[in-house]
Simulated scan of single mutants.
Amino acid sequence: MTDLVASLRQARHIPQVALQQYMVLRSKALDDFVCVFEGQEDYPYYDTIFRKIRDDFSFKPLIVNGKDQVLGLRNLLLQRESPAEKKVAYFIDRDFDGYKNSQPSENIYCTDGYSIENNLCSVSILPPLLASEYLCHKYEEDDRIPLIVAVFRERLAEFSSLMRETNRIIYFARQNSIRLQGVENQITKYLDISLGSITSKEGSKLELLGWPEEVDPGIIPCEIPDFEQLHSIKDWRGKFVLGVFVELLHHLKNDRCSNAPSLFSRKSGMKFNPKGEIIRTLAILSPVPTCLRSFILKLGATASLDSTKVTA
């Protein structure tokens, strides 16, 4: 039974599965532009960004199972000559391994940071979020906004210090083709998070990351020059970054709703739920990367994309 389950899981990563999904979608949308995404969380983000930038473009989303499926589907469609296959764009996360064995091209967008989650966590979104969803504007608490922004900066700095080793391990694994057997993405497994401080939890980081038993962890360097050049909020694992951001927003809501708030001047109920469907809300407020804006503006500008032209 274990072998059967493993085989079924492995089958989900075969590009032909994505091709079958594409053929079903294309049969119902012969002339539509199709955008292929790695996962379900990508669609609300990109759909929101599309709507922010253009009102003259529509597309059908195709959700496949990860970067390998996106790139694998593209390689399969390159072998076809149908004009419909040129009305497809592909969206992947840069992660720690970029395009992997594929080449950049005009019909693939790769995030400028680790993933779309990183784009959602700029402190620049806090002032409008606090003013509207946390009701600072309603209660004339605009003076509280700089204080809260400062608290977030301090907590994110602590996150960066405490999660450096964890991200370095993932980086090393990805760069050396070491398959991690299930990375735990829940940030509260690694950290105790509050508005007052973030501290590390006891436990093995290697176990949480699914480090394979047959590989000696002693090979992981204490410092990797290329990794040290990365920006923690922009370039580290996005699910960790979004996780800590959401946890802080959640604790901030609890503070707003408490009888004796520490960061607000008064108690107030609020409808905003940081642990709900938050991606669209944050995407509306977050800045759009220049490269993504340029990519979206070019889609559909001509009858088809030149899917074989390699860019620098």
Results as ranks from 00 to 15, higher is better:
L4F: 09
V5F: 07
S7Y: 09
Q10K: 14
V17K: 08
L19Q: 08
S27L: 05
D31V: 01
D32Y: 11
V34Q: 02
E41G: 03
D47Y: 08
F59Y: 15
L62T: 04
V64A: 04
L73C: 08
R74Y: 04
L77R: 05
Q79R: 15
Q79W: 01
E81D: 11
F91V: 09
F91W: 04
F91G: 03
F96A: 07
G98Q: 01
Y99V: 02
S102Y: 03
I116T: 12
L120T: 13
S122K: 12
S124W: 08
I125L: 12
L135C: 13
K138A: 15
E140K: 15
A150W: 02
A157H: 06
A157K: 07
S161H: 08
R164T: 04
R168P: 00
A173L: 01
I178L: 03
L180R: 04
L191C: 02
L195F: 06
S197W: 03
G203Q: 06
L206Q: 07
W211P: 11
W211F: 15
P212Q: 09
P217E: 05
F227W: 05
K234G: 00
G238D: 08
G243C: 15
V244M: 07
L249D: 08
L249T: 09
H251I: 06
L252V: 13
R256E: 13
L263C: 08
G269C: 11
M270K: 09
K275R: 15
L282E: 13
A283Q: 06
L285N: 11
P287S: 09
P289C: 02
L292P: 00
K298E: 14
A301S: 15
D306P: 04
V310M: 04
